[in-house]
């Protein structure tokens, strides 16, 4: 794990003294020392939230491919909450959010996010998929869930999670890197595209054939 002194040393510098480094925008090392811990950096909540429109979504079927843009347009709903205004997350409700900061990782650094204990103790879970791969670039999508018993008011701009960094032994190859091209990353939370992998596709095909044979017999 990298301590924050090492993270600071590994920050990308556009004057050419440190290329292919870590990028965090806004940079908490320059703007807000309170975000810097010994081994983690606090990140703030962004202003965009994405929700599923329950009245239009009967089920999310992981056996069916999903195109993110089409899915977001037909079954998602976005909200923008200005600074100083709350987003109320009721018990049992799930919403996608994103970090205010934009993170970019070089090919030999990975990261993971974790909730802040003060918020977790009130029932706020901020992620279900914590890992951030080398080469990632963008605002990190957060999966917010209120597992508590009372509604929670959260505010864009508030510190909402912490980010830990790990050195990866050996740089990740370009083929395996999250950075397929330079231009990858987004500022809003994303539902993401999805496709069953080959093994699942094969199982689904076999099951479909079996069912078809059963119907005909």
């Amino acid at each position: 794990m990298l301590n924050t002194d090492e993270v600071k040393r590994r920050l990308h510098r556009f004057d050419g003294t440190q290329s292919d480094g870590i990028v965090i925008v806004p940079n908490p090392f320059e703007h807000d020392a309170t975000q810097i811990g010994r081994t983690s950096i606090d990140l703030r909540l962004g202003r965009w939230f994405s929700m599923l429109q329950q009245t239009k979504t009967s089920a999310i079927d992981f056996g069916v491919p999903r195109n993110e843009n089409a899915f977001s347009a037909s079954e998602g709903r976005s909200s923008f909450v200005p600074f100083g205004h709350p987003f109320v997350l009721h018990p049992g409700r799930f919403v996608l959010a994103s970090t205010f900061e934009w993170l970019s990782l070089p090919n030999d650094v990975a990261a993971y996010i974790s909730g802040k204990s003060a918020l977790g103790r009130m029932g706020l879970i901020i992620e279900t998929a914590a890992g951030i791969h080398p080469g990632f670039s963008g605002s990190i999508t957060l999966e917010l869930f209120n597992c508590g018993e009372v509604p929670i008011r959260i505010y864009p701009g508030m510190p909402v999670c912490q980010l830990f960094f790990h050195q990866v032994d050996g740089a990740v190859s370009k083929e395996n890197s999250a950075k397929g091209t330079k231009f990858g990353g987004r500022r809003k939370p994303a539902f993401g595209s999805y496709k069953p992998d080959d093994a699942l596709s094969s199982m689904l095909d076999v099951a479909a054939i079996d069912q078809d044979l059963f119907r005909r017999s």
Binding site: E68, G138, G184, R186, R187, S193
Partner: peptide, 30 residues
């Protein structure tokens, strides 16, 4: 760089928009 789409199906316009907008957001935040 003539690739109009990145590996996430995002156009260069969309991606550049995100970069401009996130950069502009700094002013308000600061």
């Amino acid at each position: 760089d003539l690739n109009q789409l990145n590996n996430k199906g995002q156009s260069k316009t969309q991606f550049l928009t995100d970069l401009v907008v996130k950069s502009a957001e700094n002013l308000e935040y600061l």
